[in-house]
Design a protein around this nucleic acid. Structure first.
Lengths: 354, 354
DNA sequence: CTGAAAGCGCTTACAG
DNA sequence: CTGAAAGCGCTTACAG
């Protein structure tokens, strides 16, 4: 019988001996329950061949000692650690955290833990992190880009599966999980057309980003299907900023005052456009409908009016990356680029347009 | 002699056999170099008592096999894993990532790896993550709050040191690393006074946040030292949003048109204030100087003019948290609340004020 | 200077 | 149903 009145070895006063004994081991549980460590292991792992009575006795002893199995030892035996590395360059955490969350979901909370490493755009630091992660025997790696541009694959031969998220690997044989920016652009233009807009212009971002051109291409394709083309014949490129959005909108409206819809390459650009239109006395959405990309909370909910946008579903992207990685770890490799759809989020900047 | 012309067992074609043999072990290196694993271990770990010749032979063999030591095995022996858990509720990653970066710096990249877990404000999920982390035998835990409000300490007796970052633990005996919001508020007001402002108002954020009141208290203290008080006698509270910033500014200016400086509880509020002032025809900084808090890149660089603000030094906060945790892990516990200073960042919204 | 042995905490055949 | 033994990959006294 376990004597519950005896204070357990692991229950110090709340703030007295704060880090008491090292964690309990199978051996100690075995001693307390009067069985061998092999039996403790089986009992705790729910193996069939343990008597009910023994199993219960072991369980009680384990609870008494606040037993937590040592994953290191388990990992050493199993040849698998249940850990993955998430490598990012994302200084602001805008992409990494949603991707991390999606990955946690997909892996099933608890069964897999994620090492997050920020390389800060530094190749040396990236190498350090990779070495450390491999030394910790992660089962796989997710590399999150800070832009949608393809990136060079990790250097050297990595002995575990790697999935590139957001930014694909430039090697098509690698596994990548990315947004479908073409259909995102299509989605944006379709929505403006559905709002009854026919004189639609495009204010894009930095042309050095593949996402910029892809979104424009999608939008133009959609317009063509409706017998339309972009006002001015071309998208205007600048940078991913409100400043550019404001300047671009002024310039656009000066040349093409007839515009009744503007697709913006990002929410930042769109936010600038909204401010400029307000100052030009153009009403959104009555005179002009505006739509952005990204669904960046801070920008879209605080603008006047709130901004309709195309969400990148980053969390879903993370889930997809994690799923791919999981399959590869299990030997069912699905190489190549996997696409995650975006999602229209309608708000005041297009809603109620006449 | 090692024969370099023989392809090593670990060099598959770039995309052929992608995940070749499991990683090399000391045993394999020993076999290749013709020594025992004990000697391999000593040679690779730079122990003194190994002959130069042997050490070199071992090193060559290790390089040949692309040896990476198994941290799990090392951790099992050492009773230390060189890992810490970072527990956050920060959906946007705005705080977690800078804190993570600071922690990586303080720990020294490579020597410590960080598990990042997002509890998403869910106590159950937090428990799951803690169990998983303890199972992985992290050496310590950093708990990052998503607000500056004190939080309840982790439930149960955690067998490793815990440092609370950004949000302190409500138990003063715990280790916490937080901003000094009082002196941040003081800093903001001092700066406006230094700019020659004398009719200074305060537009705060959500009064439910301790940071709101602390910043106000600091600002008032600074003003009093200059024989000033807040215009209107009190700070105006609302929420942490541009919408409130716009509304608050209008209301403030209607009642106190003489205002020549506005301290804002956050950059979001300040951004709203800037927009409202512009629409009211008040020039910033000539008529009115405006200062915010947080130095949130997206907000401060895209506003008109750019926003002077008080940076929270989150990365430094992360370094401090990591340093505290490191000391606690080494047994040199420094309990209590440790404060990280903020930093004034001057931009156009106060610069050049007449 | 080198190596055999014990052991970190666990799991898994294999006997009993 | 239970346990002794081997072993995952490594480090560390301890002999030689």
């Amino acid at each position: 019988m376990l004597d519950d009145s005896t204070p357990s070895r692991d229950e110090p006063g709340a703030h007295g001996d704060r880090h008491p004994a090292r964690p309990a081991t199978l051996k100690e549980i075995g001693a307390l329950a009067g069985v061998s460590i092999a039996t403790v292991s089986k009992a705790l792992n729910g193996r069939a061949d343990v008597s009910r009575a023994t199993r219960q006795r072991v369980q009680e002893a384990a609870d008494r000692l606040k037993f937590t199995p040592n994953s290191l030892a388990q990992g050493l035996l199993a040849g698998r650690t249940g850990t993955v590395g998430l490598l990012t360059n994302d200084l602001e955490g805008r992409f990494s955290i949603p991707v991390l969350m999606g990955a946690e979901d997909a892996f099933g909370a608890g069964s897999v833990s994620v090492f997050l490493c920020d390389a800060r755009g530094d190749a040396i630091r990236e190498q350090h992190h990779i070495r450390a992660l491999l030394s910790r025997r992660v089962d796989g790696l997710i590399v999150v880009g800070d832009t949608t541009n393809p990136r060079v694959p990790l250097a050297g031969s990595i002995p575990v599966p790697v999935v590139y998220a957001y930014a694909p690997s430039s090697d098509p044989r690698d596994m990548s999980a990315v947004n479908d920016n073409v259909s995102a652009g299509r989605m944006a233009a379709e929505h403006l057309v559905a709002c009854g807009r026919t004189r639609i212009a495009y204010l894009s971002g930095d042309p050095a980003f593949t996402a910029a051109g892809e979104r424009v291409a999608g939008a133009r394709a959609a317009l063509r299907e409706h017998g339309l083309d972009l006002v001015g014949g071309e998208a205007l490129y600048g940078e991913w900023s409100e400043i550019w959005g404001r300047a671009g909108a002024r310039s656009l409206l000066a040349r093409h005052p007839e515009v009744d819809g503007i697709v913006c390459g990002s929410d930042q650009v769109a936010r600038g456009v909204l401010d400029a239109l307000r100052e030009l006395g153009r009403h959104v959405p009555n005179d002009i409908s505006v739509i952005g990309h990204d669904n960046w909370e801070l920008l879209v909910t605080q603008s006047r009016p709130q901004l309709t946008t195309v969400d990148s579903n980053l969390q879903e992207l993370g889930r997809t990356a994690a799923r791919l990685l999981g399959e590869a770890i299990d030997g069912r490799t699905a190489s190549g680029t996997h696409t995650v759809a975006c999602r229209l989020v309608v708000r005041g900047s297009t809603l109620g347009a006449v």
